[in-house]
Amino acid sequence: MSALTPILEAVAPAASETRVVEIGGVPIALCTSSSRFARMVEERYSGFVTRNEIGPGTIQFDIDLLDSAARAFNENDEKYENLQDDDLEVTFESGLWRMCRGDFSAEWDPTTRHGTIRQAMNPYSLDSVLRIVHTLVLARGGEFLVHAASAIRNGRAFLFAGASGAGKTTISRLAPADATLLTDEISYVRKNATGYDAHGTPFAGELARLGAHCSAPLAALYLLRQGPENKIDEIDPALATQALLRNILFFARDAALVQSVFEGAYEFVQRVPVRQLTFRKDASVWELLV
């Protein structure tokens, strides 16, 4: 009997570890047999890992680590940092969302809220899957993730949208001590009873700093432009909608969801002031943002 014990141990399923990452009030449970993967999740989403139990309504993913999972994640490895979404495919077939890119594949059933992620041991693939799933969850309700920095000041949240180089990280870096940074890269926008809230996210840009896990009512969305002076200009509502749509994260080739995103942007522009913020690279811009 004692001779068999090692064999039984080898074939017995490993104990599953669960980490729940909650962003924008949407909990996603990640179940893995790898303690190392669980630790990586805790470190990567520090502050957003809220509990280790799956509650009602929690989205759940089983993590299927690929063979290369044995390779230790090397923070200096640029392989994953250069991944683009160009080859990303997000499709809805037979009741399942399928997400596929060179470094991962995943399925998710929005009815059972259960899915599987196949990836190696790295945070970049998981980051991408989480972003995609959040966009899918939010889209139908007119809520969204948007390429924007965001911060809370005096109890009100401000969004700063723009493509790479527009100044999201710069304006985040210039934020005064009394501002709470929600993200310098990807903001999370949800509806509340009277308008919208901006929520903190762990999706960081060049600042490489996780946002605060909190939220506040959204006061305005600023489209960033760097210039010789600080000023806020009104912009045409249609242009504001177009600019917002350009910055909303959305990956699925699904006509119904595209319509939902469009409707969401239209509603947002009617309810939240959208302005052009021209700023110079110093902290004085924050004098306009109180």
Partner: peptide
């Protein structure tokens, strides 16, 4: 039928749901 459209401030915004092309 594969479009979404809305009128805002007198302008019509039209977006193709097939390729997300946007027109004002």
């Amino acid at each position: 039928s594969a479009i979404a459209s809305r009128v805002l401030a007198g302008e019509t915004m039209v977006m193709s749901v097939l390729d997300s092309t946007f027109f004002t």
